[in-house]
Design a protein around this nucleic acid. Structure first.
Lengths: 144, 144
DNA sequence: GTTGAAAAACTTCCTTT
DNA sequence: AAAGGAAGTTTTTCAAC
């Protein structure tokens, strides 16, 4: 992981469909060498995957909320239970008063309520505290 | 936005480097027609961009925290102030007791503390409450 | 939406440093 | 071990239908 690798990651984050020749030119390498570096970044798991960013509102997921989940039991094994709820985009175990923090996207607040109900059904969950997002300033990739 | 468009989005989220011919085969279209549909999805902003997912830990950003920000003033105009802090990956205006919720990634808790200090320096900010993530179960794209 | 041909890009291999 | 260069193959692009 030298500086050239970091530059490549920045460029790929901006536009992963850029040709290797253009990438190489930007960092001062040939297309072949660039290709080899990116291949290794994938191999080492630094690049997890190539994907497209979808506008949530455009696919009917205009409601965003963060939910603090309290539990009477250790939540460390409940990852699959959260994962089974497709509206949950992220799930984290947290330090502090609550036990887990999840990020939820739905089309309506009605659906959000239904997600909360399903979270409640997870073993040990004793409470939820939902925070609804009014406006998202920005969401961006990891800064390098 | 018909069902084929949704299928294409799912496939592209999984792997955006897949060739159009393979995409087309999966949804029952020719490569040309597939290309045209994806082009329109980009044009309409449903697809925001093609990017790579970088493992935060691999680039020295192993510490993740969510910070509730309280403010004595309307935060709706402070988006640029949050955006100026590169460690902030997301910033949202929220309903409820706090005023904003931001997602922060740093390499150390020391650096996290420094980010909190910079958040405090934003006009009107009267308090922060950081929640440190112990383990991330998952982070995934918008579910379609 | 489909087909087919030209242009561009990707992958692989080999040489060089 | 890493980068440069060139050839073969695939993909993308852009017509016409």
């Amino acid at each position: 992981m030298d500086d050239i690798d970091r530059q490549l990651l920045v460029l790929l984050q901006q536009d992963a469909s850029r040709p290797y020749a253009a990438l190489g030119e930007a960092v001062g390498l040939s297309a072949g060498a660039t290709h080899e570096r990116v291949r290794k970044l994938r191999e080492r798991g630094v690049i997890r995957r190539t994907t497209v960013e979808v506008d949530p509102a455009a696919v009917g997921q205009g409601v965003l909320a963060f939910v603090m989940v309290e539990s009477t039991r250790w939540v460390g094994d409940s990852g699959d239970r959260f994962s089974a709820i497709p509206e949950i985009q992220e799930a984290h175990v947290i330090a502090g008063s609550a036990s887990a923090l999840v990020k939820v996207r739905t089309s309506t607040t009605q659906q959000l309520q239904d997600v909360l109900r399903r979270i409640y059904a997870i073993d040990g969950v004793s409470g939820t505290q939902a925070t609804v997002v009014l406006e998202t300033f920005f969401e961006r990739p990891v800064t390098l």
